[in-house]
Simulated assay, not measured.
Amino acid sequence: MSSRRDFLQKISASAFSLPFLSWASCTDNKSSQYQTQEGPVLRVAIMGLGSYGNRVAEAMQSCKRAKVAGVISGTPSKIKDWQSRYNIPDKNCYNYENFDRIKDNTDIDAVYVITPNALHHDQVIRVAKAGKHAICEKPMAINAKEGQEMVDACNNANVKLLVGYRMHFEPKTLEIIRMRKEGELGKIMFFQGLSGFRIGDPNQWRLNKQLSGGGAMMDIGIYSINGARYMVGEEPVWVTAQETKTNLDKFKEGVDETIQFQLGFPSGAVASCLSTYNMNFLDRFYLNGQEGFAELQPATGYGPIQGRTNKGELTQPHMTHQTVQMDEMAAIILDGKQPIVAVDGAEGVKDLKIIDAIYLAVQTGKKIDVKL
């Protein structure tokens, strides 16, 4: 988490100087695109060089359709390290104050925003105004209103906005979705999603409401929300929720420790889920139908995902999630490919509307209607 703290300390400091040259010799993106046998390569600048940014970049080394082409960071030493590791030229390096200049850089097609939740809104809108496609980590914003503003900004700029839903491309997950779609599980009745771990450093940004927008729900909890939707195959129409907080020093006002929540779907199916920062070994999805069941445990970790159904063990091979995600997102952006499960900004806004409803249900103790 020290890398995150470094980032947060640096983001408010004055901009450091980096050599920047616009590619005046390049007249259009297509002329400078790398080509492979599979097609053009999506050239990505990573914004936020913390632990997950590093994981994404390492995974992209195995991509066929995506390449790390630039960096955006508030820490000069990190930029120098990434330059040496990924052969990134000075002209493709930016800080948080000057990255709007990316507009003139035809060597970069998209920016992957991997920063604290509360920063996503402004940063994605700036990326859109610079004419670059945006990929944003989840949750896409701290509420549905901000998320919709991000979608609108990208639509107005005629650029794509995708959200880092890596599980939407995971083979065992997709096999369960296939089975459900083809009726092999029968009428879906129930989903359970358990998402949680014991969080450490109390001073990290994830426990700072101004940066995270909440607590466990704005981090690990979104997996059960999103998972309920793609596993059941419907959109919820109501939500109820209850909060438990045992450590008021660590989990201050507006920072949730544990929330249990329930979702109701038009068909009558229901979901019962748990989001927590105070329990380990919680990463399980269970889907029940009248003709069968499916279970994933672990369900959303970095892998390998393990799963079984009433027909036996799931045996689809493990592939590094972020490698698959970035190759698939390159195909979405460059080829117009339609994914099996949506990963666009509209998908992200739906999750945010549910999160808004969960927090409202906690505050009021009432069943909240949801309209997606």
Rank of each mutant, 00 (worst) to 15 (best):
A45V: 03
L49C: 04
L49T: 07
Y52R: 15
N54Q: 14
R55H: 14
E58W: 13
E58F: 14
A59H: 03
A59L: 02
M60S: 12
S62H: 12
K64T: 01
R65Y: 04
A66K: 10
K67Y: 14
K67M: 15
G70Q: 12
I72S: 11
I72R: 05
S73A: 13
I79G: 04
K80W: 13
D81A: 15
D81K: 15
W82G: 00
Q83H: 02
Q83S: 13
S84W: 10
Y86H: 04
Y86I: 02
N87H: 13
D90M: 10
K91E: 02
K91T: 07
N92V: 06
N92Q: 07
Y94F: 15
Y96Q: 05
R101V: 05
I102M: 14
K103R: 15
T106W: 15
T106P: 13
A110C: 15
V111W: 05
V113M: 03
T115V: 15
H120D: 01
H120P: 06
H121V: 05
Q123C: 13
V124D: 02
G131D: 12
K132C: 06
A134H: 10
C136E: 08
K138A: 06
G147A: 00
G147T: 06
Q148C: 04
Q148G: 07
M150Y: 10
M150V: 07
D152W: 04
A157K: 02
N158M: 03
N158W: 00
K160A: 02
L162W: 02
L162F: 06
F169V: 08
E175G: 00
E175R: 15
G183N: 09
